[in-house]
């Protein structure tokens, strides 16, 4: 597994943990910045809505970035695999914040509304399903879990393609009309799923032949 085999440390400018910490910090910057703005009434007239959508958008961006790692290596040879776990965790982190802001700041903890949301509204049910599917992926993102699960780890983490499909649909539904932003992101997410499927198909055919 390339992830565990590590990177030649001597080629890095900063120690490996420093690099990851920097990526995490950089990744959280959009959330921190907007939280600061929102707390100080600098997010415009509808701050909660802006923050909620901002967090959702960054969750999509990090999810997409994580999914791009493998195709990028196959197409260009550029290997960013050592950042993939952090990208996935950032995506999960943004999803948690997105849901947290929805429940806490937007609906202000109104249980009645939340129960209706999760039983009647496909838009929110789909989003919530994606969130739930990401939980086992985040929990099993440690080195220890990867070792313990062995081959099953890879199979479990294929769930991310299900997440990508659900997120694409949720993202498209979040807008009143189809538009450049929603169609582009959803299209890219779907493209990742398709790429993965055809790669698996080719491998399967090779093995069958």
């Amino acid at each position: 597994m390339p992830y565990l085999s590590g990177t030649p440390r001597n080629r890095l400018l900063v120690p490996w943990w420093g690099e990851r910490a920097a990526l995490a910090l950089l990744g959280l910057l959009p959330a921190i910045l907007y939280f600061w703005y929102g707390a100080h009434d600098a997010l415009g007239p509808d701050p909660v809505n802006v923050f909620e959508r901002w967090l959702g958008l960054w969750a999509v961006r990090f999810l997409l970035a994580g999914l791009l790692v493998t195709p990028l290596r196959a197409l260009t040879g550029l290997n960013l695999i050592r950042y993939r776990r952090m990208l996935g965790l950032l995506a999960f982190c943004y999803v948690c914040l997105h849901v947290g802001v929805y429940v806490g700041l937007d609906q202000q903890g109104n249980i009645g509304v939340l129960v209706q949301d999760l039983t009647r509204r496909p838009f929110l049910m789909i989003g919530f399903a994606a969130f739930m599917l990401m939980v086992p992926l985040a929990i099993t993102s440690t080195d220890g879990a990867m070792r313990r699960l062995g081959r099953r780890w890879g199979r479990l983490h294929r769930l991310v393609y299900g997440v990508a499909l659900l997120v694409a649909v949720h993202f498209l539904m979040a807008f009143k009309t189809y538009n450049v932003t929603s169609v582009t992101y959803a299209g890219l997410l779907m493209a990742m799923v398709v790429w993965r499927c055809q790669a698996a198909w080719r491998r399967w055919r090779r093995r069958a032949a």
């Binding site: 701050p47 909660v48 509304v113 949301d117 838009f123």
Partner: peptide, 17 residues
Amino acid sequence: PRWSQASERIIGAGGFF
């Protein structure tokens, strides 16, 4: 279909809080 209409956000009420 995508959200409750039981309550509304007041525009220009100030920041998050």
